[in-house]
């Protein structure tokens, strides 16, 4: 077996992981599985595409590939702006839909609403941009060998580096800042958190901002490595859930490790069986976890 699948799997796992962090955070703080999370990935990618286009219009040099990379600084800046925009989209969706239902207290209705929102958001993208794929860059990149048998493109290396940075940043936020401690507190015991003076609505906002921003980053990576299309996020949904559950829902390191397992398993399947069966891998892993260890690798409660 060609070891290349490890590199491909890690890159895929990195993209899944950034989305899975958001899924696991929303789940542990708001206690529902957000089926619209995949749409934040798609909307983030399109928002970046549009913003990069705007920046390119104002500063044409921003579109030229920077150094060995396929895209220029324009996409990087656009990605940062789009992360904020996607975070705000998540907050808006919460305001318009989820919060109203949360107040009524039926948690499974919120899941249903997220499913409806996911369909509508995706269809809206399809209407706005059609279903034909878009690209940040048409440049073909040459993969360079890093270890014998494994080749990685400069873009992929940069993306892996960015994922590590973002995951570390989330970890530091959760463990070292007051907001992070507040998020953990709300996740464990919302009533006690209120008694301590923590504004739960504020914590929820930050959770959506963070989850949306990370989903956007995942979407940008997906757009760079594969392509941008309205279904990109929806197709990620099952891997996102599988990773979050595999890692133990609520656990951020668990979500990353779960995502890497899903990503590498998918890449191995593509190499051994065929690309057309890739989407089934996440499902099989999910079923295996639910049967063997429903609390996941690092989870406590189900």
């Amino acid at each position: 077996m060609n070891p290349q699948f490890i590199a491909d799997g890690l890159v895929a796992g990195a993209m899944i992981g950034l989305g899975a962090i958001g899924v696991t955070l929303t789940y542990s703080i708001l206690r529902f599985s957000n089926f619209a999370h995949g749409e934040f990935i798609s909307w983030g990618a399109y928002a970046t595409l549009l913003t990069a286009g705007l920046i390119g219009y104002l500063a044409p040099s921003s579109n030229e590939g920077y150094g060995p990379f396929s895209v220029g600084w324009g996409v990087l800046v656009a990605g940062l702006i789009a992360m904020v925009l996607t975070g705000l989209l998540a907050v808006l969706l919460d305001r318009l839909l989820f919060r109203r239902l949360r107040r009524k207290g039926a948690s499974i209705t919120v899941v249903m609403a997220s499913f409806g929102a996911s369909m509508a958001l995706r269809a809206l993208l399809e209407f706005l941009f059609t279903s034909s794929p878009r690209y940040f860059s048409r440049d073909l990149q040459i993969a360079v060998p890093v270890v014998p048998g494994i080749r990685v493109t400069p873009d992929q290396m940069a993306l892996l580096g960015m994922t590590v940075t973002l995951a570390l940043a989330v970890h530091l936020i959760l463990t070292q800042t007051h907001m992070g401690r507040s998020m953990r507190a709300v996740s464990e015991n919302p009533a006690l958190a209120r008694v301590l003076g923590i504004d739960i609505d504020h914590v929820i906002h930050i959770t959506w901002l963070l989850g949306g921003a990370l989903a956007c980053a995942s979407g940008v990576m997906l757009g760079l490595v594969v392509q941008i299309r309205p279904y990109m996020g929806f197709d990620m949904l099952l891997p996102l859930f599988a990773s979050a559950i595999l890692g133990g829902i609520g656990s951020v390191p668990g979500a990353i490790i779960g995502a890497l397992v899903v990503g590498v398993s998918e890449a191995a399947t593509v190499q051994l069986i065929g690309a057309e069966w890739r989407a089934a891998v996440a499902f099989l892993l999910l079923i295996a976890v639910l049967l063997i260890r429903p609390s996941g690798l690092f989870g406590k409660r189900v």
Partner: peptide, 20 residues
């Protein structure tokens, strides 16, 4: 009951309150 955050350290429990 359930008047401490069991999954956090003693120090984090206190820092959480201080952070508010």
């Amino acid at each position: 009951t359930e008047n401490v955050f069991a999954t956090m350290t003693v120090d984090d429990n206190l820092r959480l309150a201080a952070g508010v």
